[in-house]
Design a protein around this nucleic acid. Structure first.
Length: 433
RNA sequence: UGGGGUGUAGGUCAAUUGGCAGACCGCCCGGCUGUUACCCGGGAAGUUGCAGGUUCGAAUCCUGCCGCCCCAGCCA
């Protein structure tokens, strides 16, 4: 009878037993009469030892056919050995080749340029660093869903194909039957507002699309955004929710994905401090701070990347900047009753130069003021008829925000660029693989 | 779109500034019974991004084009 199959991660439970393991070759070393096969099965990495004198000749000769990424099945005894990375190794008794891999596998355990790696993203994902990032991303998403589930939010999936609505920045267009042009969603927020009137506390979580010709480490054409919307929350409640949410997610990843963060050489002490309350700086005060630090930012300007860094400087946790000038922000944000030049909104800036991870606001709930803003922005009123209905039929104070998943994952992982935070990044010059 | 940089072997990079196109990794052949990005010896591997120009001679200088990277803007 054949030994049972085992995942590498579970081998400690099989010490002293014979098992079969299936996976891919990552490294090969041979000393003539003893050979080492390091393999990966997705759950972990395992060193297998092949000794010429203790296996049949054809098994020994099979070693010569192995190359990086050959798919194999090995049978052997699991034993503890301090010389093996991880403390366990497999003494091979049988070796089977499942899928060969030509000698030209492009990705070596050496350095490569970013363009080459992105061209081979489908294979690059197999590397240890990329697996660690994928697992941190997964934990981040799961923590986000758990956070809202535990607080009785309802998940509402909003459409990706939409008519012209949302923000004004670049839209991806496509033909849509007899209805004319459809646009890929830039936000689910407006639909989320409709759902909040039905369900109270909701969130949506999906891909979102921006056709801007951005070429920075902070932008993707397609990224994932999670957007809660809460009936009867004002702007202050909204910031409280963001603070609680971000703290929860970061601490959850720290708790459950420490080995992955270590593999990424992340300084986790920079994440341990991410607990509320976060500093809250009024936009007008932020301008004064920037002036004192030598920036030429003026009241009325939106804040640039350099300004954001100056404001976060010296803080060991994210920082809110709230109540921006109306002109710098979207039409749907509620006018600030205390200063009508501004709107009730906030940006949450991550530390260490990662910039804006959240944009949030209280929504304009006054029908006439919203209609006026739509006109001022030159937006097609017809397209916003249903959105205005939310103010017409039982208006309500409500707030929400959008958190960029890849920016958050980049920050948690300490990545130099957003493109590693998603399996297959979409940028203006990259549509494949 | 603007500013800066870069393009040489499959990969990462060098080439004494205009004088025979090289190293390491990987690959192939040989050796090695405990390797850890194994090691040792040998070998194959190039339209120097593309097009044109200057020159006895161009990877190197000039013109144009293209790709990519970084920064800025847009934003999450």
């Amino acid at each position: 009878m054949n030994p049972p199959y085992a995942r590498i991660a579970d081998l400690s439970a099989h010490a002293g037993q014979s098992v079969r393991v299936r996976g891919w070759v990552t490294h090969l070393r041979s000393s003539g009469k003893v050979a080492f096969i390091v393999m990966r099965d997705g759950s972990g990495t395992l060193q297998c030892v092949l000794v010429k004198s203790s296996v049949p000749a054809d098994t020994w000769e099979l070693f010569d056919q192995l190359t990086q990424e050959t798919t194999i099945e090995v049978t052997g005894e699991v034993r503890t050995d301090a010389r093996a990375a991880g403390g366990f190794e497999l003494g091979i008794t049988a070796l089977e080749l499942i899928g060969s891999s030509p000698i030209d596998y492009p990705i070596q355990p050496k350095e490569h340029g970013i363009d080459f790696l992105l061209d081979h993203r489908h294979l690059w994902l197999r590397s240890g660093r990329q697996r660690a990032i994928a697992r941190v991303r997964h934990e981040t998403e799961q923590a986000m869903r758990d956070f809202f589930y535990e607080r009785d939010f309802t998940l509402v999936d909003t459409p990706i194909l939409t008519a012209a609505i949302g923000e004004r920045s670049g839209l991806f267009a496509t033909e849509y039957f007899d209805e004319g042009t459809a646009y890929l969603a830039q936000t689910g927020q407006l639909y989320g507002e409709a759902a909040a009137a039905a369900l109270g506390k909701i969130y949506c979580f999906g891909p979102t699309f921006r056709a801007e010709k951005s070429k920075t480490r902070r932008h993707l054409s397609e990224f994932w955004m999670i957007e809660p919307e809460v009936a009867f929350n004002d702007s202050n409640d909204n910031m409280n929710l963001q603070e609680e949410f971000v703290s929860y997610v970061v601490q959850r990843v720290l708790e459950r994905k420490k080995p992955e963060l270590d593999e990424l050489e992340r300084d986790t002490s920079r994440l341990e401090t991410v607990v509320g309350p976060f500093p809250r700086i009024d936009y007008t005060d932020a301008i004064k701070i920037l002036e004192s630090k030598g920036s030429d930012a003026k009241w009325g300007d939106d804040l640039g990347a350099e300004d954001e860094s100056l404001l976060v400087e010296g803080h060991d946790r994210p920082v809110f900047i709230y109540n921006y000038p109306k002109e710098a922000k979207a039409f749907y944000m509620k006018e600030n009753p205390a200063d009508p030049r501004t709107v009730l909104c906030d940006d949450l800036l991550a530390p260490e130069g990662y910039g804006e991870i959240i944009g949030g606001s209280q929504r304009e709930d006054d029908y006439d003021k919203l209609l006026k803003r739509i006109h001022e922005e030159g937006l097609p009123v017809d397209a916003y008829g249903w959105y205005l209905d939310l103010r017409k039929y039982g208006t309500f104070v409500h707030s929400g925000f959008g958190l960029g998943l890849e920016r958050t994952v980049s920050w948690i992982c300490g990545l130099p660029h957003l493109r590693e935070a998603i399996a297959f990044p979409r940028m203006m010059n990259r549509l494949r693989p």
